[in-house]
Design a protein around this nucleic acid. Structure first.
Length: 115
DNA sequence: GTATTGACTTCAT
DNA sequence: AATGAAGCCAATA
């Protein structure tokens, strides 16, 4: 088993913890996954995620609140749609982190630490 | 072993 | 607010 797969897996697990209706940044996910400074690795992990798997990759965006894709791109539009299904407002390719940014509470932090 | 790449972040214009 | 350079670090080539 490759270690790289381990990290990918860990990242997926962390993404799954993001509550519905909230969003988190790549860096934030990296931190929670125990991989500080690996924001880019998070992006890679999401890219590798098969779409058969139910992964809320669309709840992950840039630290600025912007979607990681260019406005108007296929992925950006899809992400926007999915987010709006989760009651998250997306305007001009970005989300107001002030309003929808995920701030992990104790229970959720424990979930990330328990293994 | 070195070089390139990337669904990122931060700081400086 | 928008744009660009530099920093970053594991995965690939």
């Amino acid at each position: 088993m490759k270690e790289s797969s381990n990290k990918i897996n860990k990242i997926w697990k962390t993404v799954l913890v993001i509550p519905k209706g909230k969003v988190a940044s790549y860096g934030q996910i990296a931190d929670l996954a125990g991989l500080p400074g690996r924001a880019r690795l998070v992006g890679k992990a999401l890219a590798l995620a098969p779409k058969e798997m139910q992964l809320p990759w669309y709840r992950v965006l840039r630290s600025s609140g912007q979607l990681a894709f260019e406005k108007g791109s296929e992925n950006a539009e899809k992400q926007k749609g999915l987010l709006q299904q989760e009651e998250v407002v997306v305007l001009n390719n970005r989300v107001k982190l002030k309003q929808f940014g995920w701030q992990p509470d104790l229970a959720e932090m424990l979930m990330g630490l328990k293994y």
